[in-house]
């Protein structure tokens, strides 16, 4: 058993009990970005610092990915085993909207404004058998 690791370093804090998304903030104009950037999209400044974006927010918009994407999508799924997934933007506490996969994958379960929380999921395993991880969001409260 090899330890699980992020598919891409630096998107969320890992390993840790409660992972948070990691972005950047511009020290010149205060704007946030995700993923971390070396220069600011708002003011062109290069005075950036790492920023903890937290692990909760509200659903700003959403859709459902109902068919299996072509490459560059890369999981161990096949056309037969593919499970549709939600995609949305989550409005974080700082106001930044982060695009994410959503656990909820049917229109009945998704509503603009609903509270969402971060979770870590396995995308696939690498050649050594390690789980490769990414983030997604799911409903913060059980749907009734």
């Amino acid at each position: 058993m090899v330890a699980a690791k992020p598919l891409h370093e630096g998107l969320f804090s890992w390993p840790t009990e409660i992972p948070n998304l990691i972005g950047s903030q511009c020290l010149d104009c205060g704007e946030y970005a995700f993923p971390k950037q070396n220069s600011c999209r708002a003011c062109s400044g290069q005075n950036m610092t790492s920023a903890d974006l937290g692990n909760a927010g509200n659903l700003w918009t959403w859709t459902v990915q109902s068919f299996m994407p072509k490459t560059p999508y890369h999981t161990h799924e096949t056309q037969e085993t593919f499970t549709p997934y939600g995609v949305g933007y989550i409005e974080m506490a700082c106001g930044l909207k982060v695009e994410s996969r959503l656990r909820e994958n049917s229109p009945e379960l998704l509503k603009i404004g609903m509270p969402m929380k971060l979770e870590i999921i396995t995308v696939r395993t690498d050649d050594e058998g390690s789980d490769l991880l990414t983030f997604q969001f799911c409903a913060a409260e059980e749907q009734s």
């Binding site: 598919l7 918009t61 959403w62 859709t63 990915q65 999508y73 995609v87 695009e99 603009i112």
Partner: peptide, 20 residues
């Protein structure tokens, strides 16, 4: 990672934009 995890689809963007 953005493409590998299934976010690199224009169709998703169009859906999300008109949804909002």
């Amino acid at each position: 990672w953005y493409g590998e995890t299934g976010l690199m689809l224009t169709t998703q963007y169009f859906g999300m934009k008109i949804q909002r």
